[in-house]
């Protein structure tokens, strides 16, 4: 009995620790004052109004959205065959390769960003936009591989063999039988990867440049100059959108089992 009370206390403390900052941000975004303060004084929606009217935010939002969608899509297209191979076949050096594929998720983002900067921009001299897209693809790849692998492991290999024994080539069986049955895994991978890309700072920091910035980078830049609650309002919008996407995906598809 006593134990469970202590556990409950720990749970509440953790909850406050995790959720608290979000609540502070959301509440402070409704402040009517021009300086961030908690608890806020007054109530207004002026910062929301301001967010929508700052052009930098609008252009960088679209940049983040486009980068995120393109990189996620690419990482999925590359990640599915890799996950499929790794789940289905055994080969020498498989563990080492799996570790290598997941390295961008283990190595600190700043290091990855710097490495990509050296490689893409200095050595290859490719356009910044392309570098940003490729860099995001690289960091999303481990996520798509991992989530798709999890859903493939839940899929009975016998089903694929049944399709082959009925006359499908292995490739046809993959598209006709495997893909339709790992749909929710694919969607889970897409959402996780997209959110990862959309929120990424360390890698984007190195791979953005004149005229090319993502929303989180723009938010950082803005915060260096202004202390008003605009960023709180913008963050609140992002939080709400993220929660809605993840919750509805969980309700409809039960994606949490793949993450």
């Amino acid at each position: 009995m006593k134990n469970s009370k202590i556990l409950l206390l720990i749970l509440i403390v953790m909850f406050v620790f995790l959720i608290g900052p979000f609540i502070v941000i959301i509440i402070s975004s409704f402040s009517s004052q021009t300086v961030m303060r908690f608890p806020p004084e007054g109530f207004s929606l002026r910062w929301y109004d301001k967010v929508l009217n700052i052009e930098m935010f609008r252009t960088t939002f679209w940049m983040s959205l486009k980068t995120g969608l393109a990189a996620t899509f690419t990482a999925l297209v590359l990640g599915v065959p890799v996950a499929y191979t790794n789940v289905k076949y055994r080969y020498p050096g498989k563990n080492a390769l799996e570790l290598f594929f997941s390295s961008p998720a283990i190595v600190p983002g700043l290091v990855v960003g710097f490495a990509l900067l050296r490689f893409f921009i200095y050595v290859s001299g490719i356009p910044i936009l392309l570098g940003l897209y490729l860099g995001h693809t690289a960091i999303l790849f481990p996520y798509t591989v991992r989530v798709v692998s999890a859903s493939l492991r839940n899929f009975d290999a016998g089903i694929e063999e049944a399709a082959v024994s009925l006359g499908s080539s292995p490739l046809h069986a993959f598209f006709a039988v495997v893909l339709p049955n790992i749909q929710s895994g694919l969607i889970a991978a897409f959402i996780l990867a997209f959110i990862t890309s959309f929120n990424n700072v360390p890698v984007s920091l190195f791979l953005t440049g004149p005229g090319v910035a993502t929303l989180p980078i723009q938010m950082l830049v803005y915060m260096e100059y202004y202390f008003d609650p605009t960023i709180s309002a913008l963050s609140s919008i992002i939080i709400v959108i993220t929660v809605i996407i993840v919750q509805s995906a969980e309700k409809v598809l039960g994606i949490s089992k793949y993450m």
Binding site: I159, E161, A162, S165
Partner: peptide, 17 residues
């Protein structure tokens, strides 16, 4: 296997869900 005319029945049925 897809070129052999053999029917297979599995322990866990392996129906296409």
């Amino acid at each position: 296997p897809n070129k052999r005319n053999i029917g297979l029945v599995f322990q866990n049925y392996a129906l296409f869900p």
